[in-house]
Design a protein around this nucleic acid. Sequence first.
DNA 1: ATGAAAGCGCTAACAC
DNA 2: GTGTTAGCGCTTTCAT
Lengths: 342, 342
Amino acid sequence: MDRRQATIKDVAKAAGVSFKTVSRVLNREPNVRDELRARVQAAADQLGYVPNVAARDLAGGRSFLIGLMYDNPSESYISQVQTGAINRCSELGHHLLVEPLERGDDAERTLRPIISRLRVDGLILTPPVCDSRTVLDIIEQAGVRYVRIAPDREIDRAPYVAMDDVAAAYEMTRHLLGLGHRNIGFIKGHPEHGATPRRLEGFLRAMDEAGLATPAERIQPGFFSFASGMEAAGRLLSLAERPTAIFASNDDMALGVLSMASRQGLAAPRDLSVAGFDDIPAAAMAWPELTTVRQPTEAMSRAATEMLIEASQARGAPIANRRLAYELVTRGSTAPPRSSRG
Amino acid sequence: MDRRQATIKDVAKAAGVSFKTVSRVLNREPNVRDELRARVQAAADQLGYVPNVAARDLAGGRSFLIGLMYDNPSESYISQVQTGAINRCSELGHHLLVEPLERGDDAERTLRPIISRLRVDGLILTPPVCDSRTVLDIIEQAGVRYVRIAPDREIDRAPYVAMDDVAAAYEMTRHLLGLGHRNIGFIKGHPEHGATPRRLEGFLRAMDEAGLATPAERIQPGFFSFASGMEAAGRLLSLAERPTAIFASNDDMALGVLSMASRQGLAAPRDLSVAGFDDIPAAAMAWPELTTVRQPTEAMSRAATEMLIEASQARGAPIANRRLAYELVTRGSTAPPRSSRG
DNA sequence: ATGAAAGCGCTAACAC
DNA sequence: GTGTTAGCGCTTTCAT
């Protein structure tokens, strides 16, 4: 029940070297002869030596702890983020501390302890808390490194990992093109949202590459809402050359498209293919189920974790943002256009 | 970005006392004059002092970390456990470390680091990993305190928090009694399972208190399986005095009862009320939805956390098991008996 | 390439 | 009641 843990000195004694040499071996520092390195390693293994994190933290200022801070109400989203972070942490010899920020909590009171007491090596922030200016202020003031996942505001304020909207929209458009569609309508997102121009860009790039022109009336404004999707669909479906497919910048709008189509007696995907973006839960419950793009949540979380740990190892080297490709989720709402039609 | 954190010595200087006195105040130790206590507290607040956990750990052997170890595939279950543990941790000045044990993982390799490196003050184990003898062996050998949530095997091997089966079964029986049932059939659980006699006890106690006798033939054996529930229901429904309600020791069996009843042309709850135990997902998808008993998962997790922290504060005082009351989930499968009948 | 010394911020044991 | 002296197990200088 109480076999005392071996310390670095026990290992040093067993290997017949100074304990500093053991420290060097453990930290993969240079300037140790291979022979010694092997001897020390053997002794450590034999004693089942495991370095004490508290001591390393106290002496070296690294806690080997990554904090995950969230206030997202979706269980499955958090669960995915957590899985990615935990796994990457464990691969890199770190551990994950989970800290929910209760809605309406005093952010300062919640953050202070985890920042100052535990001195995490880095903090991962998920939406929506990653967009809270107050929270960011507190964290920055405390001098703690952080990476945001899919931030939506003040994008350039700090390192983040996000989806590659351009690539995703490009890929979705290629999917539609591959099915044989040539006349594709596009519904833009909210004009204030950063993803809006990027998704449009991906769409246009794919169309361009396919040698297809896109007349301005085929690109309709939207506001990421169900209603705006319906309205935009109404405009697109009344065009002289009616699109055989509509790609909406998010699922809410795509669902609006679906609804408007059925009002007009058009059945998806027979008369109209519809694609969305986000893969919200309702996307899989619509009829037909919506073809869409899903955020690689777990991968983003792994990336964020890795960025943090690498920066802490490099003693504060700058962190480069990363954009990960989305995953295309092909479901029933997209199909080849009816050959009878144009 | 880099305002150095205040240390205990800074506070001591500001308050004009020795740093040991500050330590006393912070740890609520006795033997400090109130005046000094106040002075120190003020200085600490003013400097925004927060004790460094690594230093406390190193010096005092307490990490202020609680580990949550799980290998449960249910997201929502884990999420509930986590919420309970995090909240209680935060209330008691601790933090939660989350460590999943991958199925088929080398338990030893996963456990070692969190036990030896981080020296958690305690470990919470959820089912099914809390029933793994190998895992328990490793943890005990490392001398780490742990509490299991709802363990199923080797119950008396270590402290645990579980449901109060007796109270829950008692309450469910009261519910049936309250609806007006007098002739209630009961289906026992698997004879090897610890909960089996407890659930029966709760049932019998409620019947006794109501002054109702329960002839032996109204208590049928079962094995926690759907099939055994059907069979037991068959026997109960062919009794001369047919029960107006059947209380099965778990949901699988209750679902079997429902199925057997409808085969015999009996509609629940009109002709027969049925109650289960566990609140498995299928319980809410059956028709009628099953009245059952749900584990207070979050509360159990809070309790486990608290037990661990209290024990660590009391320097290894023995931990007493706790049994929490279940929550009654009243749904469509139970109703008053038909007045036309007995 | 290796080792000795100092100290991280705190608690524990003992003095006063 | 309060202060002093030692470490806890490591990493960091800085010698050698």
